[in-house]
Nucleic acid binder design. Structure first.
Lengths: 224, 224
DNA sequence: TGACATTAGTCACAGGACGTGACTAATTCG
DNA sequence: CGAATTAGTCACGTCCTGTGACTAATGTCA
């Protein structure tokens, strides 16, 4: 998507699109036109009269995966690490796409699981790492897990998504108890049979108002 | 601090410095040179060869309150809301200063409690609001409260700082129990008598390693 | 000087939340 | 039909949290 005919941009918009592939997070990269096997985070220059958010949405859509289910700015990057076009600063966005969204055709874009990401420019590597950290941190404040799932899902799928994001296994009973207390999902009438075993009921994301309880002080969560 | 002789900057660095005044948060504003009673968030253009972080630190120091105890980027702003110099985008930073730090002399800078902030340019108002939200959100992940206190403090002062940031009252016993479990402070040999009543022991911030326990799923903290 | 107000600091109990293992239910496969 | 597999629930013990009441140490004032 980079348009080389424009004047050297003062500021580029980088968009890190994440999804879930199997039991891992994956990022959408774009094949760089020059290098034969070089990949970059999708980006473009901000256009006149265009807000940064609109530019990020445009970059995300141009990857032809539809609108991202979530999009948030993660900050401005500009120290040392060079951007491909040597723009002074990059404003980066993180976006989430439901799992199962097909990889765009044409071979220009491809999903890479986080363990298999090819070498990137230093600044783009930093942007990617920040995006992943942000998603993991947002989990407690925003229904991030649901943005990575299709509209209807089984509770086991939801639990696996949380395990993926948290990086640890959860106990089934604990997870469901907490889910019930949070009033985040409601059951549908549909069931899905996944080969062998009892069929699972499908749920949808349907948050309800709840008392602003928020008990607990939990200073022990402090990390540093 | 804005230097008008430079070329129109493509990107400005805005710094929101916060402290505690009484039982409220306060922000440091700078008197605008033109308007008689207009105030702005301290800012300056990024200089060549200077990282954004360095520029933010320079702006903070130039307010002559010493180094901030904490400084973090809160994002890039540029939609609609005009910056005073009409720069296309502003990269904003939030900083914390220990309470009791004197207001810089000269009348150029002044502390405003959050309820008394004068009218600001829309974008600067947005930056300020975002900074305050960020500080409140960071509380659970970073020892923000200690950055607002002097090096030595009583546990009642620490509790009041948490109450200020959380916006709600805490029970003394609960707060101290959680504090003990978190291994964040250690007592000193000094005591302080605050007029009437039993003297309070002084503590200092001294975090210790603790097991990465982090029990609990707590989906109920989701806000939306 | 002695009672009282004021602030610091601790204790213990009740109720709720969490980790855990074991249980029942419904389906496929042989 | 029985074994294997996955979904879903229950109950118990342990730990955490909210809460009120308690002791401790100082200043104030009659």
């Amino acid at each position: 998507m980079p348009d080389r005919k424009m004047r050297r941009p003062s500021c580029t918009i980088d968009v890190v699109l994440l999804t879930a592939v199997g039991s891992q997070l994956a990022v959408l990269l774009c094949r760089a036109p020059e290098g034969r096997e070089k990949w970059v985070v999708p980006w473009d220059a901000q256009r006149p009269q265009e807000s940064m958010e609109a530019a990020a949405l445009r970059v995300a859509k141009s990857a032809s995966v539809g609108e991202p289910a979530w999009l948030e700015q993660i900050g401005a990057f500009g120290d040392g690490k060079r951007h491909p076009t040597e723009a002074e600063i990059s404003v980066a966005y993180a976006g989430l796409v439901p799992m199962g969204t097909p990889s765009p055709i044409g071979g220009v874009y491809a999903w890479f699981t986080l363990g298999d990401v090819p070498q990137l420019a230093p600044r783009q590597r930093q942007v990617l790492d920040t995006a992943v950290s942000l998603i993991r941190a947002r989990m407690d404040q925003s229904p991030v897990a649901f943005r990575l799932l299709p509209q209807m899902f089984t509770l086991t799928e939801l639990q696996q998504m949380y395990e993926l994001l948290l990086g640890k296994r959860l106990h089934k009973a604990s997870f469901r108890r907490a889910l019930q207390a949070a009033w985040l999902v409601e059951p549908t009438d549909e069931w899905r049979s996944e080969g062998r075993g009892r069929p699972a009921q499908l749920y949808r994301y349907a948050p309800r108002k709840r008392r602003p309880a928020q008990r607990g002080i939990r200073l022990d969560l402090l990390s540093s």
